[in-house]
Simulated assay, not measured.
Amino acid sequence: MKPSGSPHRASVAATIRSMPDVADADGLTVGQVSARLGVTVRALHHWDEIGLARPSLRTTGGYRLYTVGDLERLHRIVVYREIGLGLDRIRAILDDSAVDVGGALRAQRTQVAQRIERLQQFSTGLDRMIDAHEHGLLLTIEQQAATFGPEWNPDRHAQARQRYGDTTQWQQYAERSASRSPGEWQTIADTIAALDRALVDALDAGVTPGSPEANQLVERHREVFTSSYFPLTRQMQVCLGHRFEADPAFAAHYDGIRAGLATWFRRIIDASARAHSIDPDTATWQ
């Protein structure tokens, strides 16, 4: 197990600058070395146990004492640890004359640069996730209009955030939204538009609630919604279907496509729910 360093550990440059002039022939104790180097006593004990940095002296009582030479080795260990080298690599640099120290440091610099790049990517991803949790849809107003049509209301997601922001479903939706590109949103919009056309065709063809054709459309809606927004259970779908009919914004959307579509859509969802032993009148959002 690798011991952790002090949370107040000095930077590489500060560590190098703070090289103490230890002239005490009796050496320094573990506590004194810990304070001077900014590493924990536990780390010093561990380095001693694995033979990485053993004190040259002991008191008559068996306590460790570090000499000037010991301190110089410890300083190098601290510096190499600070730049991310592992203890085995540090041991090789200190003890193996065949090791190319410059090459090892250049390789470490490359790894550090790669880590910095990954952290920058993580930071960008976190920024997008924060924005998605706060706003839902990470598209400009112009992109929203181009994707969802000129009748799209850009305030819709702000209203949804205000109403559902503390729910698990909003969190699931936001985390998906954070990773989506405008092209992916366009694919979702096209898929939903295709479903709307299929609903209109079924209504025009006289498809009745509870029929195999109607039930297939209900399942298709649940699958599309689940892949686009968040997992939608059948009970939740029933609640949503009732909103399609009762909520003026939803009703205007569906009835704007075809008169009576909102009510018919709610009816086929209810019929499908009954086929799965769910009472539409008592269904809850779960």
Rank of each mutant, 00 (worst) to 15 (best):
Q169Y: 10
R180K: 14
I130H: 09
A158Q: 12
K2I: 12
A92K: 04
Y229N: 09
Y254S: 06
D24W: 03
V224A: 12
G69L: 04
A283Y: 09
G51W: 07
L94G: 00
I16D: 00
G241H: 03
R220W: 13
I83Y: 01
G61K: 11
I130F: 06
S228N: 11
Q144C: 12
R118I: 07
E245G: 01
G5W: 00
H46P: 06
S18A: 15
F250S: 14
D88I: 09
D279G: 11
T191C: 09
A246D: 14
G183F: 00
D21H: 14
Q159P: 00
Q237R: 06
A252H: 06
D281F: 04
R36K: 14
Y164A: 03
I278Y: 08
L87F: 01
I269Q: 02
R73T: 14
G61P: 01
E245L: 15
T167S: 15
R220S: 15
A198C: 02
H8C: 05
T187M: 14
Q169L: 04
M129F: 04
V200S: 13
Y164R: 08
A271H: 06
R54A: 08
V30C: 00
W185H: 14
T140N: 05
G86A: 01
Q216G: 14
A25R: 13
F225Y: 12
L85W: 02
D26Y: 03
R156A: 01
R243W: 08
I16G: 00
G61V: 01
L87H: 04
I269D: 04
Q172K: 08
G149H: 08
L138C: 03
D100C: 02
P3Q: 13
V39F: 10
L57E: 11
G260I: 10
V30W: 00
Q143Y: 02
D131C: 05
V12D: 07
R267E: 15
L105K: 09
R106N: 08
H276M: 11
E134M: 09
V238H: 08
P20R: 13
D96A: 02
V68Y: 05
M1W: 05
I50N: 06
F230C: 03
